[in-house]
Design a protein around this nucleic acid. Structure first.
Lengths: 227, 227
DNA sequence: CGAAAAATTGATCGACATCAATCTGTGTGG
DNA sequence: CCACACAGATTGATGTCGATCAATTTTTCG
């Protein structure tokens, strides 16, 4: 009963869509829904998209599945600092330095689009619309995000689930019934708490009829993604 | 004995420097150190630079002093999500939407540079070097930052102080002796903890000879900004 | 089926929140 | 100038939430 990965999503609800389109990488004559881009890439759960410190060749966008952005602490413990869901763009920080800053690892089977940085650099100097699109993309990505690891553990877990729900909804996926897509351990790492606490909070929310739970599958009841 | 505000810094160590220069806003014939830009702006401690939801006209860079980026919770409590120190750029998230996403408030007397977005938009379509500089700036700003509000309260406070030290050092300021620049209450809000805890941890670090403290003035002893 | 990983549940302990009192420095008006 | 008020900071006492330790249960997968 392995939960299906989140997505796939349509190109039009991807953050990279405009940039992608201007790069002329979307096949001509596409008909609605899902489209082919220049470079698709698939990863099995647990495999790495890239590593911190590595030279950066590409920008990625998530088509299907979820990935974790990981910070390795001084003692080697992995701390998850972000989760990427379908429609998100990964690697925007490498534009200047051409070096990735974190490990990024698939937590589910992933399909993503790959856009070579060289291609972008070549073209935005010629196509000013592309420069604009890139600037808009990076601008959005530069907004300080409200951290999930704040408040009581109950608030963190509820915040995490709501955050996922809103993101899915924004991309045209189901924001009321979906898979958490990762283990309790990974959720705990993201929320800077413990696996037992995550489990207890989820069960507690279930008893309070806020959600229904079956493994990683969640259904929102009194919680609402639009709230 | 009010602590002096952090800075001022030299233009060349400001994140906005390249963009600023290409905009031709730095007066010609400058001689080293501090230079005049097109628009300076000063704020008294406690005054707002801009408000969440407000239409965005400008990008700012901090020349002197410190500001807090504030998120207002559902019950009206202020949660500090970021601190801006000299050399930092504020408002990058507004490039696309032309709307600021947070309240930003001076915690010390502040001097900052103001660069109208309209001016930037007008020019990057003509000057491709400016587009590059903007893209580099936004790219850097889009990197997921390791949150300070993680780990034990001791780690949070130590992490906060070290973070400040490194930032000052990077900008050519003194990273071994400086002012925290804000109240214990504000530090507590940033670190998602309590004012009493911040106080206790600071005193504990003082007893352990990691730092010297006198009000907001701090001197690093065994702690090192380069470590 | 059997082994290993993930998740749940319970019992105990410690770190930090909370409540409360005091101390320190700063600015204000008499 | 000094008395006073007030905000910020420190310190102590107590309670509570979540970490930790431990035991099962459930799920996954070879």
């Amino acid at each position: 009963m392995s939960a299906r990965p989140a997505g796939p999503i349509a190109c039009r609800s991807c953050d990279l869509h405009e940039v992608c389109r201007l790069c002329g990488m979307i096949a001509i004559g596409e008909s609605g829904g899902l489209q082919r881009t220049g470079a698709l890439r698939t990863l099995r759960a647990g495999t790495r998209l890239f590593r911190a410190g590595e030279p950066a060749h590409s920008l990625f966008s998530v088509r299907q599945g979820m990935l974790k952005t990981v910070d390795v602490g001084s003692e080697g413990e992995e701390r998850i600092v972000a989760i990427s869901t379908p429609g998100d763009v990964i690697g925007t920080e490498a534009f200047g330095t051409r070096i990735y800053k974190h490990d990024v690892i698939a937590v589910q089977p992933v399909v993503c689009c790959e856009l070579p940085l060289s291609l972008l650099s070549d073209q935005y100097t010629r196509v000013r619309e592309l420069a604009s699109a890139l600037i808009n993309l990076l601008s959005r990505a530069s907004a300080p995000r409200t951290p999930l690891a704040r408040g009581s553990s109950r608030e963190r877990v509820a915040g995490f689930i709501l955050d996922l729900a809103r993101r899915f909804e924004k991309r045209g996926l189901d924001g009321r019934r979906f898979s958490l897509g990762m283990t309790r351990q990974e959720i705990a790492s993201l929320l800077d708490t413990r696996i037992e606490t995550v489990s207890r909070m989820i069960q507690s929310m279930r008893r309070d009829k806020q959600i229904e739970v079956e493994g990683q599958q969640v259904t929102l009841l009194s919680l609402s993604p639009s709230a």
